[in-house]
Amino acid sequence: MDRVLWRLLMATIPRRFLVHAITIEPYLGDSSTGPQYGPPVSVACLLDEQTRGVRSPGGEQVTSTSTAYCLPGITAAPFSRVTLPSGRITKVIQTKNRDGKGLGTPNHVEIQLE
């Protein structure tokens, strides 16, 4: 396959892999009544429900029970509320932008969830 065509095809994670949908309510901060969230947004993703240890933005070692792989450009601030396809509600630990810079790996956003 032509090298340029290969790079174009692998620019982002293929949409056919985005077989799940999660709902993200962005974390806006705390108030006297508790955490405040913005309006919910549905996001197509590939959801991997696997438990693993990750580091939080504060540097603590925490347990992630799920990871959502999404198209580039998706944002999910730490502490945002996420509803999984099963109905389980969880929170964002951290979001990582994965950019292969033309190395042939698909660019995507990785959202690590509690």
Rank of each mutant, 00 (worst) to 15 (best):
A11G: 07
A11K: 15
A11N: 13
A11V: 14
A11T: 14
I13N: 02
I13E: 06
P14I: 09
P14E: 04
P14W: 10
F17G: 01
F17A: 03
F17V: 04
V19W: 04
V19S: 11
H20S: 12
I22F: 00
T23L: 01
I24H: 02
I24M: 05
I24G: 01
E25P: 02
E25S: 13
P26W: 08
Y27I: 01
Y27D: 02
L28R: 10
L28T: 02
G29W: 00
D30P: 01
D30R: 00
S31G: 15
T33D: 00
T33W: 01
G34L: 01
G34K: 00
P35K: 00
Y37T: 02
P39Q: 12
P39H: 11
P39W: 06
P40R: 14
V41P: 01
S42A: 14
V43E: 05
V43N: 05
A44K: 11
C45A: 08
C45K: 04
C45F: 07
L47S: 03
D48I: 04
D48L: 05
D48W: 02
D48C: 02
E49F: 08
T51R: 00
R52V: 06
G53P: 03
G53E: 15
V54L: 09
V54W: 09
R55W: 10
R55Y: 15
S56T: 13
S56H: 03
S56Q: 04
G58K: 10
G59P: 05
G59F: 13
G59S: 11
G59H: 12
G59D: 12
E60Q: 15
E60C: 08
V62I: 08
V62D: 01
V62C: 05
T63K: 09
T63A: 13
T65C: 05
S66F: 07
S66I: 04
T67C: 06
T67G: 02
T67N: 03
T67I: 10
Y69W: 15
Y69F: 15
C70A: 14
C70S: 08
L71K: 03
L71R: 03
L71I: 03
L71V: 05
G73S: 09
T75E: 00
T75H: 12
A76Q: 09
A76Y: 06
A77N: 09
F79G: 01
F79E: 03
S80P: 07
S80W: 08
V82P: 09
L84N: 13
L84W: 15
P85F: 13
S86D: 15
R88Q: 15
R88D: 13
I89N: 12
I89R: 12
I89D: 14
T90N: 05
T90H: 04
K91P: 00
V92K: 06
V92E: 08
T95H: 02
K96C: 03
K96Y: 02
K96E: 06
N97A: 11
N97I: 09
N97Y: 07
R98W: 11
R98P: 00
R98T: 06
D99M: 05
G100A: 14
K101W: 12
K101S: 08
G102H: 11
L103S: 15
G104A: 10
T105E: 11
T105A: 13
